[in-house]
Simulated assay, not measured.
Amino acid sequence: MTRPPTIGELHHRLTLERPERTPDDAGGATVSWVTVADVWAAIAPASATETDIAGRLDGIVTHRVTLRRRADLVGGMRFVAGTRVLKILVAHDPDARGRWTECLAEEEHR
């Protein structure tokens, strides 16, 4: 966001999750998602593009997710809202004042 959100704009209830890897017997790992917190956030579309993935045209939609400051937010985590999943690509402090965290997130298809 170019300006800080108003309280009324923080109307999306999201579950913040982090990945947890558990080694399997074959030398790999299984990934499960662990809930970190439920947060209120503002979501705004950032971009939409089309790409060719394995011979199939697919859309990629990114969003800016803004919430109250969280120091524990990093890329690789995700937000979940019902059937929507937003994979966090990057998180930063948009105005360097320690009030907000803004994330660029890509919507995953389930």
Rank of each mutant, 00 (worst) to 15 (best):
Glu17Val: 04
Trp40Phe: 12
Leu16Trp: 02
Glu20Met: 08
Thr51Lys: 12
Glu9Cys: 06
Pro45Val: 09
Glu9Leu: 10
His11Glu: 15
Arg21Ile: 02
Ile7Phe: 09
Pro19Asp: 03
Arg18Gln: 12
Glu20Gln: 08
Ala46Tyr: 13
Val39Pro: 01
Leu57Gln: 10
Arg13Met: 11
Ala44Phe: 14
Ala41Gly: 05
Thr49Cys: 00
Ser47Gly: 05
Pro4Gly: 04
Arg13Pro: 00
Ala29Cys: 04
His11Val: 15
Thr35Ile: 14
Ala48Cys: 09
Ala37Ile: 03
Ala37Cys: 02
Gly8Val: 11
Pro4Lys: 07
Ala26His: 13
Gly28Phe: 01
Val34Lys: 04
His12Cys: 11
Thr49Pro: 00
Val36Cys: 02
Pro5Gly: 02
Thr35Ala: 12
Ile43Thr: 08
Thr30Glu: 09
Ala44Lys: 13
Arg13Glu: 15
Ala48Lys: 12
Trp40Leu: 15
Ile53Trp: 05
Leu16Met: 05
Ile7Asp: 15
Thr6Trp: 12
Glu17Pro: 04
Ala41Trp: 00
Trp33Gly: 01
Pro4Arg: 07
Asp24Arg: 01
Leu57His: 05
Ile7Ala: 15
Thr6Met: 13
Pro5Asn: 06
Arg13Trp: 06
Ala41Leu: 02
Trp40Lys: 09
Ala42Gly: 10
Thr6Tyr: 11
Ala29Tyr: 10
Asp25Lys: 03
His12Ile: 06
Ala44Asn: 08
